[in-house]
């Protein structure tokens, strides 16, 4: 089935939703969710870049000629990006835990001792 450019639209929407969440939500956990949404959008974008309609997975020692395959590089990139994303999300959430312990709140507008 040909879905055309739909994945690109979804990726763009995910990035935009993520940005909206990051900019306008107050809860630090929701901010982290926003970042994760942006990240998912970017990952989807990368995978879509490498997709070829009716392509097969490129796992061959000697690739047969005249066989349409999806690009392997963007998948490798996405995998790396997912791993990095896991680390950043974990770090952000653990900072959120400590912030809640010290400030007693997760409201981004109240966590502003460093200003001016």
């Amino acid at each position: 089935m040909n879905i055309g450019n739909l994945p690109f639209v979804v990726a763009a929407l995910l990035v935009l939703f993520g940005l909206y969440t990051f900019l306008f939500k107050r809860n630090l956990i929701k901010l982290v969710i926003g970042i994760t949404l942006i990240e998912t959008g970017v990952n989807l974008f990368l995978v879509t870049l490498g997709y070829r309609t009716d392509g097969i997975s490129p796992i061959y020692t000697f690739a047969p000629e005249a066989q349409k395959m999806v690009l392997p590089t963007p998948q490798a990139l996405t995998l790396t990006s997912i791993v990095i994303g896991l680390a950043t999300t974990a770090l952000l959430l653990s900072f959120a835990v400590f912030i809640h312990r010290h400030y007693g709140t997760l409201d981004v507008r109240k966590v502003k001792e460093l200003k001016g």
């Binding site: 990051f22 900019l23 901010l31 200003k115 001016g116």
Partner: peptide, 17 residues
Amino acid sequence: VKAWHTGILSDYAAWFI
């Protein structure tokens, strides 16, 4: 300029965008 440095993360990101 002091009012500009609010210390709120959303504002940091807003300036970036």
